[in-house]
Write a protein that binds this DNA or RNA. Sequence first.
DNA 1: TTAGGGTTAG
Length: 722
Amino acid sequence: MTLPPPIASTAANTILEKLSFCKSLNHIKQLHAHILRTVINHKLNSFLFNLSVSSSSINLSYALNVFSSIPSPPESIVFNPFLRDLSRSSEPRATILFYQRIRHVGGRLDQFSFLPILKAVSKVSALFEGMELHGVAFKIATLCDPFVETGFMDMYASCGRINYARNVFDEMSHRDVVTWNTMIERYCRFGLVDEAFKLFEEMKDSNVMPDEMILCNIVSACGRTGNMRYNRAIYEFLIENDVRMDTHLLTALVTMYAGAGCMDMAREFFRKMSVRNLFVSTAMVSGYSKCGRLDDAQVIFDQTEKKDLVCWTTMISAYAESDYPQEALRVFEEMCCSGIKPDVVSMFSVISACANLGILDKAKWVHSCIHVNGLESELSINNALINMYAKCGGLDATRDVFEKMPRRNVVSWSSMINALSMHGEASDALSLFARMKQENVEPNEVTFVGVLYGCSHSGLVEEGKKIFASMTDEYNITPKLEHYGCMVDLFGRANLLREALEVIESMPVASNVVIWGSLMSACRIHGELELGKFAAKRILELEPDHDGALVLMSNIYAREQRWEDVRNIRRVMEEKNVFKEKGLSRIDQNGKSHEFLIGDKRHKQSNEIYAKLDEVVSKLKLAGYVPDCGSVLVDVEEEEKKDLVLWHSEKLALCFGLMNEEKEEEKDSCGVIRIVKNLRVCEDCHLFFKLVSKVYEREIIVRDRTRFHCYKNGLCSCRDYW
DNA sequence: TTAGGGTTAG
């Protein structure tokens, strides 16, 4: 047999040179074919292997084939760098596959081989493979290497086995600061902060000096506990030991103080940072917004360059949670313009802001963003959409989202039931509740709040009673305060005030101001002066400055025309600096919001609005309208009362909406006038709106503090029961 | 021919 002539080293070098210029897998394959035909050279095969693994067009199966062509048993010197590269790649699983191939061809692992494999196992939480590797490490006696031991600790913790990690830690013969830090950091990540602090103390006792990294973790953990004692203790340690503070440690300190609302301290450390990173700026934005200092948050936010999704989301949710929904949407639009793609978390804040804003057109725009960003199949997003559309008065859109959901959970059903209840569609809510049961979805506490709320807002007393009883009888759910609240509301609204009081007196949980408020409100509607006073007194015992109780007390007296008593209460309110929330109505047209207070003359079209109001009143009077001043709660002349009731904010908003009725392009997409009000609609406005819907043949949807009124052809969806 | 640990929102 004739062997091919050994290749000259110059030829091998030529091929190596060509290999280094390979741009694609095809090039590599062509050279590989050439090598197979002409060259037997270990160095070339290794290089080729390296190239096929690390090239951008990585083809694992090809690389593994090349690997098999390397004379066995391969040395760790050949495969360790590849293990490392694979573990850092976007496909860490490939490391495990490659490791299995090494074992298959009899390759000998050393301590350097274990670290990348462990890193990959950690990344994909492959506990089984990790444990198998532990056995192998044990057999080949690499376990006494502190690096490998730390790798195993990390692996077990990443796979959710913190106790296994602790076992490895306890059995280690030598622990350095990295080992301690790994264990402490993992405890923190598991939320076992007490364990972390205990270990920190043990570490100091065993004379290992903490470094910046470990302190960074400890500071971060202190911040997460929210316990000021820990914050003080760690601060004192840093000062006493004159610890040098690097960027990470300063960031953790700023985060800790910002999280605790100590913005002065946070700002002090923030100022010490010569280079500010995105993390610390985000922490400052978050801290300021938690304290309600949104202007300061916005300043830091504006100063931050190259903001990432987290930073943008922090600013968006800051506004959304502080009840500035328009600002939240503005920042979101800016984010989209800057090319940042929203994720589920950021979209959640935006949806909630839009729900609070209550503008249907904005809701549709937010929904389109969800489509564009491919988030439409996310369960939590769809659940939030149900709530958003419901609060924007888009009941059809709400139904559409619910019916098209690829998957539904109890939250989806509860949200849809609640949406129907909010819109006065109690019978649909009850049908949906029945359908939910047919589809074997177990209702929870929240579901019952929605169903009972529907019953109480539509006067379905008997149904409400049955459903309340079924909570314990059928579903083994113990009613909570909010369920009793619904029952008080159910009886109260239906003028069954004795039954409402009995619910409060017999319930096994302590009542609160909301429950008594519900009874008191019912007493006001039904003119039950004595019981109303009784409820108001209970409220004032629990909360002496409760504005609602003081206002409702004065309302009751006003209804009875006891103006002296009304004045007494008003005096108390003035002394205590308690004010009734002012009625505020908003209407949106062409993307612009127009807000009105009672008797508001600030709008630039104010004259036209009041002229329109006069015209509307004249037309309605022909249809039999007489202003009902029963809701005017001050001692003034009858004529003045008429003005006050006619100048209610929602009437001004309505007239503004009607002024544009001829301008087709300014109408809502369905010709609907939509108004959002912060308080409950009064009796006079309710009648006024019903008549306008008939006389002007317009559909009007009003969102008040608790529900929707859809006025059409002289009727309201609440059937005058609200 | 090689090596283990850190900070941000919800």
